[in-house]
Computed example of a mutant assay.
Amino acid sequence: MSADEHEIADDKAHIRHRLDFSGAEWITSTDDPTEPGVEVAFVDGYIGMRNGAQQEGPVLVFTPEEWEAFVAGAKDGEFDEP
């Protein structure tokens, strides 16, 4: 395989510049303000996820289909520590 075949395509490049999460209502995964967790927000049909401890950091963007697969995997224990 060539180097180009190993690159992962950014399938959200066409929308990423249009999504504005700055005014989004972020939903946190925890009720404990001393223990910030993962935060999610819904903007223009996409789902953003960020680290609550680094709110100015990057936002992962999911399509609804990707989000459904992620949530299903989490419920199924796919991301549990061994």
Rank of each mutant, 00 (worst) to 15 (best):
P33I: 07
E56G: 13
D32I: 03
D76S: 15
E35L: 12
D11I: 06
D80A: 13
E78R: 15
D32F: 06
E56M: 03
D80G: 02
G57N: 08
A24N: 00
A69L: 08
V71G: 07
D4E: 15
A72M: 02
E66A: 12
I27A: 11
G45E: 00
A3G: 04
S29R: 10
S2T: 15
S22P: 02
M49C: 13
P64R: 14
L19R: 05
A69Q: 06
A24D: 01
E65K: 13
F79H: 13
W67T: 03
P82G: 02
Y46N: 01
A9S: 13
K75R: 15
L60P: 02
F42Y: 08
G52S: 08
I47T: 07
D11Q: 12
L19A: 10
G57W: 01
P33M: 02
I8D: 07
I15D: 02
E78N: 08
Q55I: 06
T30E: 00
I15V: 15
D44S: 11
G45I: 05
I15M: 09
P33Y: 00
A13E: 10
M1D: 04
E39N: 05
I27C: 07
M1N: 08
R18M: 15
D31Q: 13
E68C: 07
V40G: 04
H14T: 07
T34H: 10
T30D: 00
D44I: 00
D80W: 01
A3D: 15
V40S: 00
R18T: 14
T28Q: 08
R50L: 08
P64Q: 14
I15G: 00
F42W: 06
E7C: 10
A24R: 06
D32Y: 01
F70L: 13
Q55A: 12
A9F: 11
E68G: 14
Q55L: 09
T28E: 14
D31N: 11
K12E: 01
G73D: 10
A53P: 02
S2G: 14
F79L: 04
V43M: 02
G37I: 10
E7Y: 13
A53D: 06
T30W: 00
G37Q: 06
W67V: 04
E5C: 09
G52R: 04
E39W: 08
I47W: 06
E78G: 05
R50E: 09
Q54P: 01
H17N: 13
H14S: 09
K12P: 03
G37A: 07
